[in-house]
Design a protein around this nucleic acid. Structure first.
Lengths: 325, 325
DNA sequence: TTGTATGCGTTATCAC
DNA sequence: GTGATAACGCATACAA
């Protein structure tokens, strides 16, 4: 049973006593062609009996389009936010006949990455902007990719993008702290590769709020956090980059015997489910992803069908502030 | 530039002034065929200049093998554990020439899922055991999938599997609590679909440890956790199913004014990075995934090349206990 | 209403 | 050493 080669539409045709073309007509429900109901069921029965599954590669070759939406997963660890976005996007696109595929935990970018993706001849590519370069985009375009969507920080010419306003995150967080009377404001910039860039953008935003902001380089490490906390004098407001760093700082503050928010206030970003469990509760800023999957799916569909409006779609996520109370 | 159709090996051949077969030989470094170094570089130059990228579908069609390892991502939210496993697996398999692709946040299983996967004619499939059924496996085998690996709880006949010993987790956790003199032992069983089954397995293991264990159904919800905690009398040891539930309970215990570990002891599972930040620190049980990626990659490679040893490989992850101290 | 024939891009066999 | 040529599985224009 398992030594046999996979059944082809030709096998189905033979089993049903029809031509291979008829099989294709029936299985694809080709509109316009009238095939007797009796033939149809004979074909369907045969296909079912033989366990026939169409060969995506062959279909792609013939039709010139794979229907694959390749999502290049970002290097940075996937939180529940990204996971949820992907799940919704998958649902939306699946409903429209696309096949969503996640590609590559491997850390490649630019042309090398684009070539690897292009081999699959995806119809669309959704990629973290950090993995896209101009040359890479050319490779994708040349390979027939109809829609390229960037996700991340900076917009790229010609590439519709879903952006997180990291400056806005920083600004909003600092405003939150200032409004509550915190005076020396400190912003954490993570030292990890991949996070650092976003940390600097958030820092820029933090500094745009009109109060002096001290930057602090920090690795995700308890010892480093302890050292940082030891230098605090009390009264500070700390923007911790995100909820994970905020939790790291809360632990260090606890160990140092500092009260939160009495001695030090902390605000994070992302509104992680686990971060809601800290005591005291954490304030946080969250990019609102609720409308993103539907919008992305619609955009992709439009670009693929060539019905997109002329200008490049750049969409910045709304930011939502969540107070600890 | 972008209106053109993707370059084919034929285009490269014309540009280089050679036959199309020569292009294939050069680009695939076919051993045995001697082609002049000058021709080779002419071909490579032309390919580079045209931005030629081979068409995976066409190659699959011709060679009968895609080299794709399809990983069907599980429904349950991906933690850092699973993410890390995947990243390593990707590295291992990428080095051996495979293309790792994650498929489907969509919640399908059994034959429906298998048919969707089979369309891509993957060379191997790695899937959460909960999404595999006997019939689904037949579909995959019939589609020419050479290696099928299950991940999860129960082993399946004929399917090599990477198993987590959930009974073992429960037993180890309860032993930890008992050794520290906790008398009434309580085990949390999560109410969420997809987690519940594993929770029950861990409960079985907890009960095998020789002491009475009370089961508690719990949704991941602060109000429910508060209600549960309100019923505790003090002295209990709680196995919280995993670190996330453990953190939920720690928050509820804090709110109720109960001391940990003074009044109640809590142990989780997974050794999440964020769970290391709780105060007091959490004890936890962690399945050791360090050797899993390399082993899985080797197994897949063997199965694909037909050099696997006769019997089905079932591998249960080691469990590691981490004390709060 | 159904069957025949063609080509999509590759690899691989065989003459040259 | 290199170049025609066939075949992989499918969709579709066209003939019957």
């Amino acid at each position: 049973m398992s030594g046999n080669r996979p059944a082809t539409s030709m096998d189905v045709a033979r089993a049903a006593g029809v031509s291979q073309a008829t099989v294709s007509y029936v299985l694809n429900d080709r509109p316009g062609s009238r095939i007797s109901e009796e033939t149809r069921s004979r074909v369907r029965d045969a296909a079912e009996r033989l366990g026939y599954v169409p060969h995506a590669g062959a279909r792609t070759l013939r039709t010139g389009s794979s229907g694959v939406v390749l999502v290049a997963v970002p290097d940075i660890p996937q939180g529940p936010l990204a996971t949820g976005l992907l799940e919704e996007l998958d649902k939306e696109l699946g409903g429209r006949g696309y096949t969503v595929v996640q590609y590559g935990a491997r850390r490649t970018k630019g042309v090398a990455a684009a070539k690897a993706w292009a081999e699959l001849r995806p119809t669309a590519v959704v990629a973290d902007a950090s993995r896209l370069t101009r040359a890479g985009i050319e490779v994708l375009r040349a390979a027939g990719v109809k829609a390229i969507i960037g996700m991340g920080h900076a917009p790229m010419d010609d590439v519709p993008s879903l952006l997180t306003d990291h400056e806005g995150v920083g600004a909003l967080a600092v405003r939150h702290l200032v409004e509550r009377g915190r005076d020396p404001v400190v912003a954490v910039v993570p030292r990890e590769e991949g996070l650092r860039e976003m940390g600097l953008a958030r820092l820029r935003g933090a500094r745009s709020a009109g109060v002096p902001v001290t930057a602090v380089d920090l690795a995700f490490d308890e010892a480093e956090a302890a050292a940082f906390v030891a230098g605090l004098k009390g009264g500070e407001g700390v923007f911790a980059y995100n909820d994970e760093y905020a939790m790291l700082l809360l632990a260090a503050l606890h160990d140092a015997g500092l009260r939160v928010p009495g001695d030090v206030a902390v605000i994070g970003c992302d509104d992680l489910p686990l971060a809601r469990l800290t005591r005291p509760r954490l304030s946080t800023v969250r990019p609102d992803l609720s409308a993103a999957p539907a919008r992305m799916a619609t955009l992709i569909d439009r670009l693929v069908r060539g019905t997109a409006c002329g200008d490049v779609d750049v969409w910045t996520l709304q930011l939502i502030e969540r107070d600890s109370t």
